[in-house]
């Protein structure tokens, strides 16, 4: 339990992740769902960046030719966060474009209402 509060970066990441997940599941507006997805993305970046940190070390820019690995933090999670950000931007743009098409088609952003009603109708028949 004590460890839970020592890992406060990871704790914040988990809270953000669950908030984003609940927005994604409970909101009926497509734009708000996409915002929830972005909050989940952000929490993953925070988690990865936190995992790369090592207390008391420098950022991974080699200083004065000192290539001792014990001087610097882990550079790998930073590269992974970069990949994640790029993919998040791409999926967000794609999702927003699809939301616009949805709005053009149904004149509403309420995805649950339309989909659920259609499913219910099919179930009744």
């Amino acid at each position: 339990m004590n460890n839970l509060f020592n890992n406060y970066y990871e704790l914040a990441a988990i809270i953000l992740f669950v908030v984003g997940l609940l927005i994604l599941l409970l909101q009926r507006n497509l734009i708000k769902k996409i915002i929830g997805l972005n909050i989940m993305d952000t929490s993953v970046f925070l988690f990865l960046a936190a995992k790369g940190y090592i207390a008391g070390r420098f950022s991974p820019i080699i200083r004065d030719g000192a290539t001792d690995a014990s001087l610097y933090i882990n550079p790998l999670p930073s590269g992974l966060v970069l990949t994640g950000i790029v993919v998040a931007v791409s999926t967000t743009a794609f999702a927003l474009a699809l939301a616009l098409r949805w709005y053009q088609q149904y004149h509403t952003l309420d995805i649950d209402g339309t989909v659920l009603k259609n499913a219910l109708k099919k179930g009744e028949q």
Binding site: N3, Y9, Y53, I54, A55
Partner: peptide, 9 residues
């Protein structure tokens, strides 16, 4: 998270 190694270790 509670089972993870400590932050910055």
């Amino acid at each position: 998270v509670a089972l993870l190694p400590q932050f910055g270790s």
